[in-house]
Design a protein around this nucleic acid. Sequence first.
DNA 1: GATCTAATTAGATTTATGTCTAATTAATTG
DNA 2: CAATTAATTAGACATAAATCTAATTAGATC
Lengths: 215, 215
Amino acid sequence: MQLEKVVAYHKALADPTRIRMLILLADGERNGLELAERLSLAPATITHHAAKLREAGLIGERREKNAIYFSLNEYFLRDGADAATELILRSRGGSEREETKTEMDESRRSGEQARREELEKYRSGVLRSFFDREGRLKSIPAQLKKKLVVLEHLAQKLEAGRKYPEKEINAFIREVHPDFATLRREFIMHQFLFREKEVYELNPVEMWPRWAELS
Amino acid sequence: MQLEKVVAYHKALADPTRIRMLILLADGERNGLELAERLSLAPATITHHAAKLREAGLIGERREKNAIYFSLNEYFLRDGADAATELILRSRGGSEREETKTEMDESRRSGEQARREELEKYRSGVLRSFFDREGRLKSIPAQLKKKLVVLEHLAQKLEAGRKYPEKEINAFIREVHPDFATLRREFIMHQFLFREKEVYELNPVEMWPRWAELS
DNA sequence: GATCTAATTAGATTTATGTCTAATTAATTG
DNA sequence: CAATTAATTAGACATAAATCTAATTAGATC
């Protein structure tokens, strides 16, 4: 998933030897033995680190004779850095009030409490109007906020960390609505689920969209 | 040093739990127990991760009552990402020829060989004219390229990985030139050395400036 | 095909890291 | 000051990671 990608990227850069390799490569191609020599390491160690950099997409390689020349993938380097900040900061932005709890007096606090209740009322209202008594989805809401409420409700029935093959996801969705293809796509688009080669998995809740902040 | 800072930053982000904490914090302050609850972890685990995020400067904290509220330091998040790409890509840029070894025929190759010899000739020329027979520096070159040759020459006499207290560095420099303050500053400015509270240490050679590419 | 060079794999070792439980400290409130 | 709540520390455990040596594979060359 996105999260794991970001973690892998940072893991790749979380070692001084690998950074030094990249600095060297930023200056031009180098083969394994050259890198080993420059960094005073055994060739096997270079192979080890090269594998990690390769997985993160940070280097390219090219064979010449029986040597392999590594090069820096500058694009991925910049791109990975962006992906991380975006993943983390994506959500934040809407409210932006930044009002600390210290400053909140009792009346405000109960105002917050009231808001929570109001949201829950909105939520249950949406659910009541879009699901029938058997728990089947009558239709897919057109309005974004309502759609997210519905998707969240369904996503909560899935198990965190468990891997669902496509068939299973389809079956799960079909239990509540015939158009499993559309709903499956919505789950992906809105980051409730992520797919990795035909296998679906729940994203951590922090990555789910926050409909409460929508108009 | 810079390198270690960059590594520490990436280490901090190289764990899914910590990323999830930051995502949560991007949405607003949270105290330890709240985080533990949201992530289904023991409070002690949050303390552990908070320490790492704190070291990397990625979070701020604020005490209220007997709870501690953490918040995302958005500035450091973006800044750290930049620092990394800059450290790696800094040097590259000058030549930019990007001509692979495959394309190089024999004549080109010997041209490269010739260049290397020429550089070495330049280098020894500079050293001969700026150092006297006792190995003392006659004067600090004004021209950047020559200055770098001189600094590199001196830096090579220091031991990689060893920590030099200020006194020692001063003594080392004074052996070849009376103005140790100026030279010490030059070493820092040009990234041969880095300082961390009165202690100096050699940067890895990849971080040294490449005078060969200067005019 | 024998030889050489470069890279990889396998396996061992050591160190670092993430998580937990239990005990402890810190601050707040009755 | 007793009781409560939140955070930290200490220690244990399990897993992951970095490095090395030795053996193996891959390609090129004689």
